[in-house]
Design a binder for these strands. Sequence first.
DNA 1: AGTGGCACCTGTGTGC
DNA 2: TGCACACAGGTGCCAC
Length: 272
Amino acid sequence: MPELPEVEVTLRGIKSALEGAVIKSIYHSDKSLREPMSDELYKLEGAKVTKLERRAKYILITTTQGSLLIHLGMTGHLSVLEDNPKRKIHDHFEIVTDGDITIRLNDTRRFGLVLYYPVSADPFTLPPLKDLGPEPFSDTFTADYLFSRLQRCKKSIKQCLMDNSIVVGVGNIYASEVLFECRISPLRLGNSIKKTECELLVKNIQQILSSSIEKGGTTIRDFEGADGKLGYFVQNLNVYGHDDEPCRVCGSTIQSVVQGQRTTYYCPKCQH
DNA sequence: AGTGGCACCTGTGTGC
DNA sequence: TGCACACAGGTGCCAC
């Protein structure tokens, strides 16, 4: 499910329910996500939520009794519920607030992550946040930076864009879309990308991600925002999932290719 | 150091 | 209808 825009839309969706609220109760299932969920999570009961923020595709919730890091993996979804309805299959974690709002994590494939950090710990200096590259909207993510990083990359530019140590938040959908918008072939190696192309990449990564956030994310199968509304960015996808269809720009056939076990979509005529 | 392959999981769609 | 298989939005670990 979630790429960065979906996570940002989710964060905005849960923010009003959680910010300033007191956590009345915590629940976690016995099933392991990417890692088992610790019983230390119950230490958050009685805590006041002081801050919600996003780093890469992680949501960090800071409270007076420690912090909570949530990753949605491939199929994770957070919903905001008002009457604490019965848990359904694949509901693995929930927070109930003093305002009787339930924030519930449903994650079919269990690639998500829910971690607890004590008050004394700074999650930004610890795994998994510690070694992440720059945010796409930050001042440090510039064409100069990208160019210097790509110099030592011998893998494909598509895989470079998805490499979290280079830039965070560009997943499989948006990597294809960004390269199409830049007219750069996904098959080229990172170290073949010119400075002027890095300028294009930075600009389009920012534009496409922010446009998708505005439209509520991308719905491929089952993504909904925390309010249950579907995202509309899927209508703006030019190549992702469009293999064997005509390119919207030149009319030639969109191709797909597997790179690093992930499918890439591109127009062989438009992209060089 | 950088890269490719695989593992973690369940559900869905396709072809036989 | 049933079965086998491929594939799906992410990420970390391992061996080379």
